[in-house]
């Protein structure tokens, strides 16, 4: 089981800040494909991947990052700090 977290408009579109997912995905990109199949809201949230960033165990990474032994994956739009 991994915790999948959503922030900003991804959280709003999916309608939840977090879900526990049972997955056999090897990479973030594979996990995204599984998530898109869960609901129309998920499919819409992940329809434009150029607008989505990912962190794995709280480290910013890329969509091809492996998921072995990972506990937490977070999806969010480009950050707007400062």
């Amino acid at each position: 089981m991994i915790d999948v977290m959503y922030f900003a408009w991804l959280r709003e579109r999916i309608g939840a800040p977090k879900e526990e997912i049972e997955t056999s995905a090897d990479t973030v990109a594979e996990l995204v494909e599984e998530l898109k199949a869960r609901s129309e809201a998920h499919a819409l949230a992940f329809s434009d991947m150029s607008a989505v960033r990912v962190a794995v165990d709280q480290e910013l990474t890329e969509m091809d990052a492996p998921l072995a032994n990972v506990r937490e994956v977070a999806f969010f739009p480009p950050m707007t700090g400062g």
Partner: peptide, 23 residues
């Protein structure tokens, strides 16, 4: 670095409704 590498997201609420600030 804070602008685009720290996980913050700004949302504005105003006269024209609400919107996420785009990077």
């Amino acid at each position: 670095y804070l602008k685009s590498r720290a996980p913050f997201w700004k949302k504005e609420f105003g006269r024209d409704g609400e919107s996420w600030v785009a990077a």
